[in-house]
Amino acid sequence: MEVPILRQGQYLIASIQSALTDADLSHLREALIAQVGRSRCRGVIVDVTALDVMDSFAVRTLRDIAHMARLRGAETVIVGIQPDVAFAMVQLGLTLKGVATVLDLEEGLAFLNRRTEERTFETKPKKPSGRG
């Protein structure tokens, strides 16, 4: 099951449509990281609304995506974790520490806008001609 990755402005949006195998998840990770570098995007949104279970492999893959994207200059936010899924995750001890999570796509976009805004403010005085 291929996960479609859409580009919206300076963000990449991966919306998972159905249950994923471990191989699908690994493939998503590789595809996203490749595209972050190619397109020099500033943010990545992974929409997991359609996932009805998240086990340790899925959570690890999402965490890896966030860390790798950060190394390549993009912020990641996970959106759409379902209430039941979130509860099962924390019972499993999987808390996605250090990875941003928000309610849905709209919130995800707002979060990235805020983040990139903050970063622009931080870098502006030093680098007036920074990549924008």
Binding site: D52, D55, Q82, V85, F87, A88, Q91
Partner: peptide, 8 residues
Amino acid sequence: GEQTVIAA
């Protein structure tokens, strides 16, 4: 909620 826990 419990179904999700069992599936996980």
